[in-house]
Design a protein around this nucleic acid. Structure first.
Length: 299
DNA sequence: GAGTCGCA
DNA sequence: CATA
């Protein structure tokens, strides 16, 4: 936690007290609109002004000048309001460009911080011992192809960190939008966020997500899948029949939701489209070539 | 015997 | 096929 005694906190308090003093030698710059200026140029002072500072910083980590934590209210700025929805099947909808570039950057930052820590990205194996073609890690309840859902990481037995508030707010709002477009799509309280990174040559064979609780599957609680980085060719269908599969492009910022009657669809990623990352995202973060996916669920 | 988040 |  950032302590009230830190020099950073004190300096903000000083600015606040100056702004309320009419005898300030800073004149118009500090008086009146200074807090609005701070709020505009730096999210952290906004937190100090109106919201408790807890959760904003973490003394166990090395100090970083990158603001990786934003207060819950500000995470709403991650969302584009004018997105379009494409209903792909009953219970399955693609929200195009739902996450804006600020949000995509925040997601990359959060996943990077998680991914290099204990229990971070690793290449999982299936039950036959074959390596899967992606790196994974989890927020909240952990998932692995062999063990299924678990409250601890396989690698070191540690507990994964909670799902960031922003991820939850983002997908809850996306599910609300989806519910406005279609019937019989339940809401969820996400407790698991599988983070996958697909390098350019990786692919994902056709499969169903059915490791969740019987209750969750029975109710058709939706999966919310967020795409970041290079786009992917996503294939899906009722069965494994290759001739009856649908195909859709998932681009950076898109959120795909499948629940209700589509909860158990077969799906997979046939290829990653190298070089299709939005230029402004590529400029904002140094993500490697490939596709980052968040899959949020309620176990 | 069903089914495979893999491979070929 | 190897596995549960």
């Amino acid at each position: 936690m950032m302590k009230p005694s830190s020099s950073f906190y004190r300096s903000i308090k000083q600015i606040k007290s100056l702004s309320s003093s009419s005898s300030s030698s800073f004149g118009d710059i500090v008086h009146g609109s200074s807090l609005a200026i701070l709020r505009h140029y730096h999210p952290v002072p906004a937190a100090i002004i109106g919201v408790p500072i807890s959760d904003i910083d973490d003394d166990s980590q090395p100090f970083s000048i990158i603001n990786r934590y934003r207060i819950p209210g500000l995470w709403d700025t991650w969302r584009n309001k004018n997105t379009s929805g494409k209903i792909l099947r009953p219970g399955m909808i693609l929200l195009k460009s739902y996450v804006n570039i600020l949000g995509q950057t925040g997601i990359v930052d959060a996943c990077e911080k998680l991914g290099v820590g204990p229990g971070g990205f690793y290449v999982p194996s299936n039950r036959s011992g074959h390596k899967l073609q992606r790196h994974i890690t989890s927020f909240g309840r952990n998932w692995d192809p062999v063990t299924g859902y678990n409250n601890r990481y396989i690698s070191d037995g540690s507990e994964p960190p909670a799902i960031p508030h922003g991820f939850i707010n983002l997908i809850n709002s996306a599910i609300e939008v989806a519910q406005a477009h279609m019937d019989e799509l339940p809401s969820i309280n996400p407790d698991s966020c599988l983070v996958s990174f697909y390098s350019t040559c990786d692919r994902l064979d056709l499969h169903q997500d059915h490791d969740e609780s019987a209750d969750s599957l029975k109710k058709g609680l939706p999966v919310a899948s967020v795409s970041i980085g290079d786009a992917v060719e996503f294939w899906y269908g009722d069965t494994r029949d290759e001739n009856k599969l649908g195909k859709v492009l998932l681009e950076s910022g898109d959120i795909l939701i499948y629940g209700g009657k589509s909860r158990l669809i077969f799906h997979g990623i046939k290829r990653i489209l190298h070089g299709t990352i939005p230029p402004n995202l590529e400029k904002a973060v140094m993500i490697r070539p490939g596709h980052l996916n968040l899959s949020l669920k309620q176990f």
